[in-house]
Amino acid sequence: MSEMSNRERFLAKMAGQETDRTPVFCADQTATYEQMEHLQAFWPEAHCKAKDMATLASGAYHMLGFDAVRVPFCQTIEAEVLGCTPKHAGREGLPSIDVHPFKIGDPVKPLPDNFLELGRIPELINAVKMLKEEVGDKVAVIGGIIGPYSIAASLVGVIDILKMSFKNPEKLVPYLDLAEQAGTALAQALVEAGADVICIEDMMASMDMISPKIYKTSVAPWETRQIKSISVPVILHICGNLDLIIDDIAETGVTAISVEPKVDAPAAKEKLSKYDRFIPLIGGVDAVTTLYSGSPEQVAQVTVDAINQGYDMIAPGCSIPPGSTLENLKAMVIGAQRQKAD
């Protein structure tokens, strides 16, 4: 078939249609130090200012050849607005949450009416608008939000949420409700700003953190509610081995699932094939052992193998380590082209 544009390729695969080759992108953060130098857009400004955020994100298209660009880079924007204190990490790192504002049991106020005007949210919305204007006709634009369980973990602290998920999950409901409403409101705003796709990162819902039972009780109901409220295709990214919960994830109604290579891809594909909609499996390239530590040739080969194994869209299994080389990142696209030629 004739060559598609990056945007066409990405959106066609999300919709379960035929593509000229397997799309390549990253469901999580895409910035690297080399892109920052080349584009002259750096952290921490790119975490806070729309222009720098959009410029740095556009590197995924201009420099890496990915089929989608994505903002933001960090996972703290909603949590900060809900009262968490972020700790900034300068030029090299991502902000993290330093202070959790709630102890479990503390009362929760409703989501502020002006939520979308607070903190860095207007900058994120503007960054999506800029990306849409500048590259949106050539490449898909992904708006990133954080999943309900992960925002709730920022609100009450990781250890406390894990313990309570096990002991008395009912007590988490107010925080999960607030977290879901925040993420959903942000997602809708990003869609209005031009995002073609929303990616929910719910990294705390990993089986490295919780159990399948906790996923069913304290995660899936809120993800489901959120996904139902979003009017564009939704990718759900969860880290770790998801073999035990692939069906639960599919049942949230999500469009596509982004996973780490720890997941048994053929088994996951088989489970997903039972649903009456096409659910793309995204991933295949380990962010550390392959993308960061490997050679370009290894990255390309892993990409070819991942496609042959059943991955529908190629992506790192997690956030791109910012020290990864351009050559390695571009090798994912080279691998996808080579696989098509084989």
Binding site: L162, K163, M209
Partner: peptide, 11 residues
């Protein structure tokens, strides 16, 4: 066992 159980046990 998943992580929450091991944390509670270690406490």
């Amino acid at each position: 066992y998943f992580l929450p159980q091991t944390i509670i046990s270690s406490d």
